[in-house]
Amino acid sequence: MKNFKILFLCSLFLIVSCSRKENHPYTFYYWKTRLKLDSEEKKALGKAAAPYLYTRFFDVDKVNGKFQPVAVISKDSSFQTDKQIVPTIFITNQSLLGISSEEIKFLAESIHHLIQKKSEEYHLSINNEIQIDCDWTAGTRNDYFKFLKELKRISGKEITCTLRLHQVKDKKQTGIPPVEKVYLMCYSTSSPLENSDKNSILDVNILKSYLSKLEDYPVKKIEVALPIYSWGIVTNHLGKHKLINALSKRDLENPNFRKRSDDEIEVLKDGFYFGSFLNKGFTIKAEEISEEQLEDVTVFLQKKIPHFTIIYYQLDSKFVLDRKF
Rank of each mutant, 00 (worst) to 15 (best):
D203N: 09
D216Q: 13
A225M: 10
F145D: 11
K171G: 04
L202V: 01
N142D: 15
D216R: 02
T189R: 01
N195H: 07
E215R: 00
L214M: 00
S155M: 03
K169Q: 15
L163W: 04
G175I: 07
L163P: 01
L165F: 08
A225E: 14
V224G: 12
I154C: 15
L207D: 08
K213T: 05
V168R: 09
Y210S: 05
L193W: 07
N205I: 07
N142Y: 02
I201M: 04
L193A: 06
T174F: 12
Q167P: 01
H166C: 09
C161H: 09
K146Q: 15
C161G: 13
K157M: 10
I222F: 03
I222E: 12
K220I: 01
F147E: 04
S200R: 00
S212N: 15
M185H: 06
Y217Q: 04
I201P: 00
V224W: 01
L193M: 13
Q167S: 15
D216C: 02
D203Y: 07
P218V: 09
I222D: 11
L151T: 04
K221R: 04
D203V: 00
Q167V: 05
K171Y: 09
K220R: 06
M185W: 02
V224A: 08
E223R: 03
I159V: 14
E158R: 14
K171P: 00
P177H: 07
R164H: 08
I201W: 12
N195D: 11
E180W: 00
T160Q: 02
K198S: 02
I206S: 09
L151R: 08
I206A: 07
K152Q: 14
R164D: 12
V219W: 04
T162C: 15
D197Q: 11
Q173S: 08
K198R: 14
N142P: 03
G156C: 14
I201G: 02
N199P: 02
T189G: 05
D216H: 06
V179N: 05
V204W: 08
N195Q: 12
K149A: 14
I222K: 04
V204H: 07
L207K: 01
V182H: 07
R164G: 11
S200K: 05
L148Q: 11
I159C: 10
Y217R: 07
K171N: 10
L211Y: 00
I159Y: 10
N205T: 05
L202E: 03
L163E: 04
E150H: 10
S191C: 10
L148H: 13
P192L: 03
L193K: 14
L151C: 01
K181L: 04
K221L: 07
T162F: 03
E223A: 05
V168P: 03
L163D: 11
E215W: 05
C186M: 09
E180L: 01
V204A: 08
Y183T: 07
K152G: 13
I154K: 06
A225N: 02
K213N: 10
S188L: 01
D143K: 12
T189K: 08
E150A: 14
V182Y: 05
D197Y: 09
L211N: 13
K221H: 09
Y187R: 03
T162D: 15
L165W: 10
Y187H: 01
D143M: 06
E180K: 12
T160F: 03
Q173G: 07
I206C: 02
V219P: 03
A225V: 14
Q167K: 11
S188E: 09
K220P: 00
L148Y: 00
N205G: 12
P218F: 06
